[in-house]
Design a binder for these strands. Structure first.
Length: 505
RNA sequence: GGCGCCGUAGCCAAGUGGCCUAAGGCGACGGAUUGCAAAUCCGUUAUUCCCCGGUUCGAAUCCGGGCGGCGCCUCCA
């Protein structure tokens, strides 16, 4: 089996091989925790999860690390004074308003002016969302998901090393900058080489900032700023680290190697973030590569448009799951499937209709599983990867994560009635270890929707319906069935009586 | 303007020179089944791959040119 991935670094699809046989070290840029993560963020995180789970099925031991950016960086809004705002302060302001409107529950954040409380609140929200959607690394918190604010010392060590090695300097404004001219490979990932940056820079850069730097493309490693809401002592004065440095540090520190196998993120991170990470990491270690494979997920569109708060199509995971997008609750596995079903390097258009389509596919897989379980009395056979269905599934994903071809293997197969249900369950277990939608995650238990009063009421109606049917009182039976459907349930009358369940979306 | 992805049915989307008069899913439609439904099963659903040229015996697939969509293009994140 040959695994091939598209590598942003070379702009080509290349054969994947890990540096150390059987082990893959993968780093994914994680969320900022100033607000709830949105579905676009999760498309990127789930793309990384797909790589990880696929490689595991293919036999690798995958070590997956992600960061949480909780340092209060600055906004990119060009406000009047040209300095931007502290993101944590912006969040604090918003939270005060959200508390009044109830969007942030009472007691969740006692003191919005405490950035650590804000970070903790949104970190927990992220982890909840991530676990619901079956993001495997979220179950490895805090071992494999690291907070930037807990890595300040190693960041300072790396900055000091970069200064020693001639890759960084203290500018005229006291800020520590990375010298891009000291790193000839700068621009290799994004194509934004120093020549191109010169010609494309235009008049967007303010004169005073440039004066402090040796080259316009030099970027910040440490900013002394005694007014910043989160600050730490450093050899360069109290302040805070640059945005890029945390990822370089965490990846190298957590893995203990100079070169990792895969680095993932959203396509917006290619430049400047990942370009700068490479410059920092390779500058500090002297290695030729920071990561061998750079893989980027394309942006998510919503109903054909870029997701933005001003357009009102800016959805968080909980907006979708709690029904604020479709008008009814959506099962997490449906959202997972929806965000996973398009190729990661294509435009993914998130739509209400697409979500409903995904619900159909997920239900098909879940029903298949139920039918097999009933037929096999729960027995699950051990199957090897050489099984034809698993073989084809892996082959499809081996081709740069061709998820559509992989689903085209699974779905027709799951439409058949298997000759050997125990074997089918074994196959499904392997396939579901990657898809994780039927159920959301086999190994990790998954999240069953909690039964509530409404469920109990509906169960009672099902019994009444059965009684009416036993009397052949069809008008009453039809009336009850209609009531159950009106409550938003799907009804099924079978050999063993009537059952009702909530639709997946 | 620079760099980079991409453009196949109502929607998602496979296919990367001949087995393509183009997978698979969702949806839709017709039928079987059902007291009626649901589920399930069977069948139908692109002579055509954004447009125009070219290469070739042969192109959705290669080349050139258009058109269209998306991302990034710095010190603030």
């Amino acid at each position: 089996m040959t695994i091939r991935f598209y590598n942003t670094l070379t702009s080509r699809t290349e054969e994947f091989a890990s540096i150390e046989p059987q082990t893959v070290r993968m780093y994914s840029c994680g969320p900022t925790v100033y607000d709830f993560a949105h579905i676009g963020n999760f498309r990127s995180f789930l793309f990384a999860d797909l790589i990880r789970r696929f490689l595991e099925l293919a036999g690798y031991d995958v070590q997956h690390v992600m960061n949480i950016t909780d340092v209060g960086h600055m906004t990119d809004d060009a406000v009047a004074d040209g300095a931007g705002e502290d993101k944590m302060q912006v969040a604090a302001q918003r939270i005060k308003e959200d508390k009044k409107s109830g969007k942030v529950p009472e007691g969740a954040i006692d003191n919005p002016d405490d950035p650590y409380q804000i970070a903790r609140y949104y970190t927990n929200a992220f982890l909840d969302d991530a676990r619901q959607l079956g993001l495997k690394v979220a179950f490895e918190y805090p071992d494999n998901i690291l907070h930037a604010t807990e890595q300040i010392a190693p960041m300072q060590e790396m900055i000091a090393r970069l200064i020693d090695r001639g890759h960084a300097y203290v500018g005229g404004d006291g800020v520590v900058y990375y010298s891009v001219e000291s790193f000839p490979a700068y621009g290799r990932l994004s194509g934004n080489t120093l020549d191109h940056l010169h010609s494309g820079a235009g008049g967007r850069i303010s004169e005073e900032h440039q004066a402090a730097k040796r080259h316009p493309a030099d970027f910040m490693l440490w900013k002394p700023d005694s007014h910043h809401i989160m600050k730490w002592d450093s050899p360069w004065g109290p302040g805070y680290p640059g945005w890029h440095i945390e990822c370089s540090v965490m990846a190298l520190k957590r893995f203990g190697v100079d070169t990792i196998d895969i680095h993932t993120g959203g396509e917006d991170l290619i430049f400047p973030h990942h370009e700068c990470e490479i410059a920092q990491s390779c500058g500090a270690t002297g290695a030729d590569y920071f990561a061998r494979f750079w893989m980027h997920a394309r942006f998510l569109l919503v109903e054909g448009e870029k997701m933005s708060k001003s357009k009102g199509n800016f959805y968080t995971v909980r907006d979708v799951l709690e029904g604020r997008v479709t008008g009814r609750p959506v099962h997490p596995s449906v959202l997972r499937y929806e965000l996973l079903k398009s190729h990661y390097r294509s435009n993914m258009n998130f739509t209400v209709k697409g979500l409903q389509d995904s619900a159909g596919a997920v239900k098909r897989l879940q029903d298949f599983r139920s039918r097999c379980e009933a037929a096999s009395s729960g027995e699950v056979a051990e199957v090897a990867n050489s099984h034809p269905v698993i073989r084809e599934f892996i082959d499809a994903l081996s081709d740069d994560l061709n998820i559509s071809a992989a689903l085209a293997v699974v779905l027709p197969w799951a439409a058949e009635t298997p000759a050997d249900p125990a074997e089918a369950l074994g196959v499904l277990r392997e396939i579901n270890s990657v898809l994780a939608v039927a159920p959301i995650d086999l190994e990790l238990g998954g999240t069953a929707a909690p039964a509530d009063d409404e469920d109990a009421n509906v169960q009672a109606l099902c019994r009444q319906l059965d009684e009416a049917r036993a009397r052949k009182d069809w008008p009453t039976a039809d009336e009850i069935r209609k009531q159950i459907i009106d409550r938003g349930y799907n009804v099924h009358t079978g050999r063993d009586g009537t059952t009702a369940e909530r639709p997946l979306a």
